[in-house]
Structure formats: structure tokens, C-alpha cells
């Protein structure tokens, strides 16, 4: 009979043995079965630059504030079109090197937004650079740290390959100097832009999000057929990052929507075309990403109406049908199921 009270060897051995058995069952074996996941078909392999960017992401401790997991609950729908699955992490969560293990990308805090689809929500390289240089320049109210050590202030741009960050002159110590991104910054941005969910193969049953408690059917205004969704919420979620919450834009980076002739045009077709298909016609501003695969017709109509009737703009409203009509020519086959 084992007497734990008097036999120290037995006490320690039993405690050790049971703990090892429990640990193996609850952690090591389940973890080991996760080693054989395949990537999704069509999932791009990470490039060298993206891998270096991931290393910067880990080294700067971005995981402390940003998650990369879309949970299977309604409230996480804003971060991705489907819940995350193990295969999503096939390439990114590999052991980094001898010294560093597989990065803890899933995270535990959302002090900042989830980044699962940041490359889709925010594909603009210049936006990301400016945001890393000074987050509050593009997102007022952000509490993210600045990362000036990823940038250099130079008198003149030496080589053609260097990426100039469109920092407004009044934000610089010497208004004549230029801010250029170091390789680390470019790699990090390459990694961030690469972040998006690979669609599941054709024929896979659609993703299921569990409803929020006490909010069945109410959280998703998209399902209400008649009324348009809240345009101001979509604006601050999708547009304000570049065009700013006051729609005044950012000189040298993102154009203003306040008083814009395209916005105030009686015919909304050009504005809807730009929202759906993106815009890169003006050298002095960053590239506008296409929203055809991000927003539904009703959402686009709502946000267009919001912009056309706010910030001093005055133009007649449009409808989801009008957006649908433009979509069929600008971006056929991209209609989103609400």
C-alpha cells in the first residue's frame, strides 16, 4: 500500500506520472494530431519578404494587441467572411528558426483590430506605411505605438527602389526632407497586405456563425430587405481609415470627400464605379482599393448616400438597385450574398 504521507519517493513519482499522463492526453497528443493539416487549395505560399515581415511582426510584439482568428460567432463576422480553420495557419505557423518557435498568431487580446483579413480590408501599401510611421495620422483615436525606427528621414531619395512615405511636410522636423521606408517596414507591410482568408473550395457548405446571445437576427441589419444598413457605421469601418472621419482626407496621401466634385455629382455612377472597382488615377494620392468583394450592394448604397449627404456634401441619394446595375458592368460576378 502506497503511503503518500510517509513515502516521499512515491508521492513525487505519482504526482509526476499522473501529470505527465494528463498533459500528454490533453496537450501533446491533440497538438500532434494538428501537425498533419494541409493548406487550402489555392492558398499562396508565403514569399521571402512576407516571411521576413512576419518575423518583424513577432519581434515587435504585434501579437500582444492583435489577434488573427475569426471565431465562429456572429460578432466576429466583421473580421472575416468565415470562421478560421486550422488550414489557414498552414504556412504562417511554422517554426521560424532554431531559436524561435512557431509564432503565437492567434493572440489573446484585441486591443487593436483582428488582422485575419487586413490585406483585404486595407490593401493600400502607402496607407500601411503611413499608419506604421504614425498611426494617429491616419486613424485619429488610435493608441497603437509609432514605429519610427522602421523609417528613415533623408534629404533626398537616393535610389529609385526606395519607397517614399507620403508624410505631410508639417509633420517633419525639416519640411524639405523625405521619409523612406526601411526594408523591415516594406517587409512588414508585404506581410500585412498578404493577410486574407483563402476561400473554401466550391461545394463546401457555407460557414456557420453562432448567433450572439440575445441578438438573434438583429445584429445583422443586412437581412432586413427594405431599409438600408447604417451608412455612417460602414463609413467609419471601411472608409475613414484613409479619407478620415471628417472626410477631409490627408494632404499628399488620401483625397478629401468633403466638397469633392465626384461625390457631389448629381449622377452617382462614377462614385459607385470607384467604390466598386477602386481608383488609381491620381499620382499625388494613394491607391483606392476595390470594394466589390467587401461590401454588398445595399451597404455600398448606404455608404454612398451617407457621404453624399454629410460633411457639407449635398447630392441626391441612390439605391441598391443602382449599385447592382453598375456592378454588373464594373465587377460582374462579384455579387455578395448578404
Amino acid at each position: 500500500m502506497i503511503n503518500f504521507h510517509k513515502d516521499h519517493a512515491n508521492l513525487v513519482n505519482v504526482a509526476l506520472l499522473v501529470f505527465v499522463l494528463l498533459s500528454t492526453g490533453i496537450a501533446v497528443v491533440p497538438a500532434d494530431t494538428m501537425q498533419h493539416n494541409e493548406p487550402l487549395p489555392g492558398m499562396p505560399v508565403m514569399t521571402e519578404a512576407q516571411r521576413r515581415g512576419l518575423a518583424i511582426y513577432v519581434s515587435e510584439g504585434c501579437v500582444a494587441c492583435h489577434t488573427q482568428q475569426v471565431r465562429n460567432i456572429e460578432m466576429d463576422r466583421v473580421w472575416g467572411s468565415r470562421p478560421s480553420i486550422p488550414s489557414d495557419y498552414h504556412y504562417s505557423k511554422q517554426r521560424m528558426n532554431v531559436w524561435q518557435q512557431s509564432p503565437s498568431l492567434l493572440g489573446s487580446e484585441r486591443t487593436g483590430p483582428d488582422l485575419t483579413s487586413i490585406g483585404q480590408r486595407q490593401p493600400g501599401e502607402q496607407w500601411h506605411l503611413l499608419h506604421l510611421y504614425d498611426p494617429r495620422m491616419v486613424v485619429k483615436g488610435s493608441i497603437m505605438p509609432r514605429y519610427p525606427w522602421l523609417f528613415q528621414e533623408v534629404d533626398s531619395v537616393a535610389s529609385i527602389g526606395q519607397v517614399v512615405v507620403p508624410v505631410p511636410a508639417d509633420r517633419l522636423k525639416d519640411p524639405k526632407s523625405k521619409v523612406i521606408a526601411t526594408r523591415a517596414a516594406n517587409d512588414l507591410v508585404a506581410y500585412l497586405i498578404s493577410l486574407e482568408q483563402t476561400p473554401l473550395p466550391e461545394g463546401t457548405p457555407p460557414a456557420v456563425f453562432l448567433p450572439s446571445p440575445g441578438a438573434k437576427g438583429e445584429a445583422v441589419a443586412l437581412t432586413t430587405p427594405d431599409a438600408l444598413p447604417d451608412g455612417s457605421a460602414i463609413f467609419s469601418q471601411t472608409c475613414a481609415a484613409c479619407h478620415q472621419a471628417d472626410a477631409k482626407g490627408l494632404a499628399g496621401a488620401f483625397p478629401p470627400l468633403m466638397g469633392s466634385s465626384i461625390v457631389n455629382n448629381e449622377d452617382p455612377t462614377q462614385m459607385i464605379t470607384i467604390v466598386l472597382g477602386g481608383y488609381d488615377a491620381r499620382a499625388e494620392f494613394g491607391v483606392m482599393p476595390a470594394q466589390a468583394e467587401m461590401l454588398t450592394d445595399a451597404q455600398i448604397a448606404a455608404v454612398v448616400n451617407h457621404v453624399r449627404s454629410s460633411f457639407g456634401n449635398e447630392a441626391p441619394p441612390t439605391t441598391a438597385e443602382a449599385v447592382k446595375a453598375v456592378r454588373s458592368t464594373v465587377a460582374p460576378g462579384t455579387a455578395l450574398q448578404p
Binding site: 498533459s23 490533453i26 496537450a27 501533446v28 491533440p30 497538438a31 500532434d32 494538428m34 501537425q35 493539416n37 486550422p86 495557419y89 498552414h90 505557423k93 511554422q94 517554426r95 518557435q101 512557431s102 509564432p103 503565437s104 492567434l106
Partner: peptide, 20 residues
Amino acid sequence: IGYLPWYQNGLGETIIQGYY
């Protein structure tokens, strides 16, 4: 268990992280 590498790629790392 927290530092051995063989079962820690992909979400294996996440399981170990929660445990650890």
C-alpha cells in the same frame, strides 16, 4: 512540453500555448 518543437507547428502551438 512548452519548449519541445515536434508538435508545435500550426495550431499544435496554440494547444500547447493554452496548456502552458
